[in-house]
């Protein structure tokens, strides 16, 4: 019976969905005005540029029977805030109806921002302002204090510091590129090589494809013999037709590539692959 319950928990059948991450300030409960939201976003962006730490704010109306800390870590894990190698992400979750606050701290920042400090930021920076309905002031102050705790050179609040900061490009795009699974590059190289081979001789291409894909899959993806057999067959077909496939891929690339920059606005906010382990603190205003 307990295991059945576990299965339900694992599948999250009754659980509240994680909202999609498009901005560092996901204000679903409308706590901020448009102008305040933009100010917070640019503040968070400056912090990210200066230190690569990613802080995001999520406000929701209600938890819908979910546990505050369980929901917070679910969001943090699926948004993957922070850089992959540094795990330097922080999520500030605000629940409007139940007056709950949680600061979820990524693995990499648990040392600089221990739970006690996170709790004291909630108690001393957020709660007093929140009680007066000043959500923007509370959150802005909390961000400043987090920044001071976490970074050696925290940004200052005044606007002119913006120009003093080195104009580094956003870390986001490069972090995304580093997110490759190990071996993915090898698969791509293999496919490219197969294209050259199968241009000359399709049968040799098929043999090389079958062996190559099976070997790489065995090393990086799966050890299941059934799947490997299927991959061997697929690899043969791929190797046989690699030259043709590449030709058609190349032709359609301009309109079909989902990652082409033209479709996605460049200022979209994305997590960099950071991990969370439940650190942080909760409070209530």
């Amino acid at each position: 019976m307990k295991k059945l319950l576990w299965l339900f928990l694992a599948l999250n059948i009754f659980a509240k969905d994680v909202p999609q991450l498009t901005s560092s300030v996901e204000d679903l409960a409308h706590l901020f005005t448009q102008e305040q939201k933009q100010k917070l976003e640019s503040k968070l962006e400056r912090i990210e540029q200066a230190s690569s730490s990613q802080i995001a704010i999520l406000s929701i109306l209600s938890l819908e029977d979910e546990d505050l800390s369980e929901y917070a870590i679910k969001v943090a894990q699926s948004w993957k805030l922070g850089k992959k190698s540094m795990d330097n992400g922080i999520l500030i979750l605000i629940v409007k109806e139940s007056h709950d606050i949680r600061i979820e701290v990524g693995y990499g920042l648990e040392g600089q921002l221990p739970d006690g400090l996170a709790g004291s930021i909630i108690r001393n920076a957020m709660i007093p302002h929140f009680k007066n309905g000043n959500f923007y002031e509370g959150v802005s102050l909390a961000i400043t204090q987090i920044d001071e705790a976490v970074h050696e050179n925290p940004i200052r609040n005044s606007e002119d510091t913006k120009n003093l900061l080195p104009n580094k490009p956003t870390q986001n795009s490069s972090a995304q590129n580093k997110d490759f699974e190990p071996g993915l590059g090898l698969f791509i190289i293999l496919f490219a090589v197969l294209g050259i081979i199968s241009k000359r001789n399709k049968l040799i291409g098929a043999t090389a494809g079958s062996i190559g894909f099976t070997l790489l899959s065995f090393l990086f993806v799966t050890q299941s013999i059934l799947i490997l057999l299927l991959i061997a067959i697929t690899g043969a077909i791929l190797g046989y037709s690699a030259a043709f496939l590449q030709k058609s891929l190349h032709g359609s690339k301009t309109n079909k590539d989902p990652f082409s920059n033209s479709k996605i606005p460049k200022d979209i906010f994305r997590g960099g692959g950071g991990k969370f382990g439940g650190g942080g603190s909760s409070g209530r205003w």
């Binding site: 576990w6 928990l9 694992a10 800390s69 369980e70 870590i73 221990p114 739970d115 006690g116 400090l117 996170a118 709790g119 004291s120 108690r123 969370f276 382990g277 439940g278 650190g279 942080g280 603190s281 909760s282």
Partner: peptide, 30 residues
């Protein structure tokens, strides 16, 4: 007492971490 409040936060945070790691362990055991 601020010190007590901080310790209380640390304890709550640790309980939360235990829950997270426990779930990860149980998933792997499955």
């Amino acid at each position: 007492n601020e010190n007590f409040l901080k310790l209380q936060d640390e304890l709550a945070g640790t309980e939360n971490r235990i829950a997270v790691e426990r779930k990860r362990y149980n998933d792997e055991v499955k």
